[in-house]
């Protein structure tokens, strides 16, 4: 199976402070990967380094492409609609996506809008937290790329929205594409994960298949993650 993402010896500092060091990570195609770690562990930074929005030292390749412009074309990152004014209507945001991303698939977006029950005539300011997250997911998944990065898509939203979003991920993730979902609370996404990547002590501490963790340790993903932070599970 070919790899979608390769990271070698990645280091990143901000204001002389080490945020990430010696990160090595390879993700195969077609996976759903949980990126876990405490708040401030560097999950979002790692995603921004992958897209090229942040610059570190070392190598990052998406589908063997290292240049930032090339990488950006192959990665869809769930930016939180921050660049848009509150009064912007959703359909105007969609127009922008169509214009900027040639791989934006309008039909996929329509399907996702129907499934997630989004009213695209609403302004961003009128959206609840759950609805806003659904819009972000619909926009992110409507691009046809090799790598999807979802940054904490479930934080602070109601369980019905969460379930819908999880179903939409299963339905619309292309077979060959890989998706990274960051979260600091893993229980509800645990059943849909192929792999678990844990960021701890400014680096990737663990990368293992979810079912292998259950097999090997006989504990759940949440318990495994917690025990790692408490130093309970031995790992060489």
């Amino acid at each position: 199976m070919s790899d979608v993402l390769t990271i070698e010896n990645l280091n990143y500092k901000r204001n002389l402070k080490v945020i990430l060091h010696d990160v090595n990570l390879t993700l195969a195609q077609g996976k759903i990967v949980g990126l876990l770690g405490e708040n401030g562990a560097g999950k979002t930074t790692l995603m921004r380094l992958i897209t090229g929005s942040a610059k570190g030292s070392g190598h990052i390749a998406v589908r063997d492409l290292e240049k930032t412009v090339d990488r950006k074309r192959h990665v869809s990152f769930s930016e939180q609609l921050k660049g848009f004014a509150d009064g912007t209507r959703i359909d105007r945001v969609v127009d922008y996506y169509r214009l900027v991303y040639p791989d934006f698939d309008g039909q996929r977006f329509e399907e996702l809008v129907t499934f997630l029950q989004i009213d695209t005539s609403l302004k961003l300011s009128a959206l609840s937290k759950g609805m806003k997250e659904k819009v972000v997911i619909a926009l992110t998944l409507s691009r046809q790329v090799d790598l999807y990065l979802l940054d904490e898509p479930f934080s602070g939203i109601d369980s019905m929205s969460r379930k819908r979003i999880i179903s939409s991920i299963i339905k619309w993730k292309p077979d060959d594409a890989t998706m990274v979902i960051s979260d600091h609370y893993v229980t509800e996404i645990a059943p849909i994960l192929d792999d678990v990547v844990i960021v701890k002590d400014q680096t990737v501490a663990i990368h293992q298949a979810a079912d292998d963790i259950r097999d090997e340790y006989g504990i759940g993903i949440e318990a495994f993650y917690e025990s790692l932070y408490e130093g309970g599970v031995k790992h060489d």
Binding site: I32, I166, I170, K171, I192, D194
Partner: peptide, 17 residues
Amino acid sequence: VRQLAVDMTVNVNTIQR
């Protein structure tokens, strides 16, 4: 396969395995 994955809320690869 994908329908089973949606019905059970699991990953397509896990169903395939």
